[in-house]
């Protein structure tokens, strides 16, 4: 059961062969549910104006690209996604790209009791993903991008073993950045264009 899921997405770009049509430099997306069951989707909508035409895919940066991540909330106007102070950690000199938090039931009593939290950030964990798919834009329409948290926790076809304490959390400790990196790199696998 998740009670927090938010993330920064960078350089959201429609592809048209070798052409790129950037929709946004940076967005902060908050999917935080209210004790939502695992199968209940939380929808967030962004609107962009794009030229009509046939596109070949969508590219997304998961996290914040280095030049923007080198800045801090004090560098941005108040309506900018990177003004968000609660998502910046001075210890990393980085934004917290993603926060995923919740509880899992490890003792089998049907009540989630064990905390899991993954706060991932720093240039080392930034990556991009491209979804190749024909996209026709003609007038108003919608692209639905699905982030599947179950897939985010699936590595090499195996669900992350949450009974292992070192798999339950990563927040900032350099010793656990590997898990944070794996998770951020897994965003591309967990993202699907409908």
């Amino acid at each position: 059961m998740f009670d927090k899921f938010n993330t920064f997405l960078s350089d959201i770009t429609l592809l048209k062969g070798t052409e790129e049509v950037k929709l946004s430099d940076i967005e902060w997306v908050d999917f935080t549910p209210d004790f939502a069951p695992d199968d209940k989707a939380v929808e967030v909508t962004f609107k962009y104006g794009v030229p009509d035409g046939d596109y070949t895919g969508l590219k997304i940066g998961y996290g914040i690209r280095a030049d923007l991540n080198a800045k801090s909330p004090a560098d941005f106007p108040t309506d900018h996604p990177l003004y968000r102070e609660s998502e910046y950690w001075s210890g990393w000199k980085s934004y917290i790209f993603t926060k995923v938090q919740g509880k899992v039931d490890l003792d089998g009593d049907a009540t989630p009791e064990t905390n899991i939290f993954y706060h991932c950030g720093s240039d080392a964990v930034y990556n991009t993903g491209t979804m190749v798919q024909d996209i026709r834009v003609a007038g108003d329409g919608a692209l639905v991008v699905v982030f599947d948290l179950k897939k985010l926790f699936t590595f090499d076809g195996q669900l992350l073993d949450l009974t292992v304490p070192t798999n339950q959390t990563t927040s900032h400790s350099a010793s656990n950045i590997v898990l944070g990196q794996k998770m951020m790199y897994n965003f591309a696998n967990a993202t699907e264009l409908k």
Binding site: S86, W89, G91, H172, S173, S175
Partner: peptide, 20 residues
Amino acid sequence: FDEGQNSGLPDAQCFHCHGS
């Protein structure tokens, strides 16, 4: 600020709620 790992210090975790 949970920055003490290299100094042998534990996390007080304050900044998660009182950060920035």
